[in-house]
């Protein structure tokens, strides 16, 4: 049996006891929403509010919706409003060289639920095929006038650079620090390394992430990938600890 305690800033909500971990988490989330005074909206109402359901859109409208969503993820308003992708954009504005301000396309195609669902509406196989959803996102980005994704590149940025204010806000939001020194301490996490050759053995791996490093870059090093844009990530693994993914 599972019980979940959800903490958001000063608010905490403890669920009833459930057989499934997922149900405990959902119940804790429901209680937290009630405490926060947020009224959950069911899917049908949400679709009505958003206008057309993505299934009702024409092919062209689906592509436009995907391009619009990609542009939204780069908008300063979106990034500064508790966006779950903030760590990736913080790394983007600290990256040096040609990929400054860019995020790996796979981050957007895997982590943003709205993008995931728009890709599925364009091609239902993209839900299972990570390379296909990446391909759809890149195609949309490369044809979008506001975004910058050079040919043969797996990175997406926006043509107009982030303002200094946004850069500072992103760093402050992520680190809780006022300056851009990224003085957060090093951290490490455990991973399981699964070689593609069955002749090699599965290994436990400890990854150390320095104060100025981003976990995707460290992972790219361990995977022998050129850079973090070459990493594909799975959807979250069912029956595994929260947010576990295969990279």
């Amino acid at each position: 049996n599972f019980q979940c305690c959800l903490k958001i800033d000063e608010i905490s909500a403890t669920s009833d006891v459930f057989i499934r971990k997922k149900d405990a988490e959902q119940h804790a989330a429901k209680l937290a929403l009630e405490k926060l005074g947020i009224q959950p909206v069911d899917d049908a109402t949400a679709s009505k509010q958003e206008g057309k359901n993505s299934r009702d859109l024409t092919e062209e409208e689906k592509w436009q919706a995907l391009k619009d969503r990609l542009c939204t993820t780069f908008s300063e308003k979106f990034l500064l409003s508790n966006c779950p992708l903030v760590a990736h954009f913080t790394a983007a504005v600290q990256r040096k060289g040609v990929n400054y301000g860019k995020v790996p396309a796979a981050v957007l195609s895997a982590y943003d639920n709205k993008i995931v669902s728009l890709c599925k509406s364009i091609n239902k196989n993209s839900g299972k095929d990570l390379a296909l959803s990446l391909q759809l996102v890149l195609r949309a980005a490369k044809s979008c006038s506001l975004l910058d994704s050079p040919s043969d590149s797996l990175w997406i940025g926006k043509k107009e650079p982030f303002s200094e204010e946004t850069k500072e806000e992103l760093i402050k939001k992520f680190t809780g620090k006022e300056n851009d020194a990224m003085e957060i301490e090093s951290c490490s996490f455990q991973a399981v390394y699964i070689p593609c050759s069955s002749e090699k053995s599965v290994e436990s791996l400890t990854m150390r992430i320095g104060p100025q490093e981003h976990f995707m870059d460290v992972m790219a090093y361990h995977l022998g990938a050129g850079d973090s844009s070459h990493i594909l990530m799975s959807r979250t693994l069912k029956k595994a600890p929260l947010e576990s993914r295969l990279y």
């Binding site: 599972f2 019980q3 903490k7 429901k30 903030v86």
Partner: peptide, 20 residues
């Protein structure tokens, strides 16, 4: 509800699930 929390609060929301 969980997706709403995650969308709104991202990594600020901490789920601590215990086996009871």
């Amino acid at each position: 509800p969980k997706s709403i929390i995650n969308k709104k609060y991202g990594s600020k929301a901490q789920y601590i699930t215990t086996d009871v």
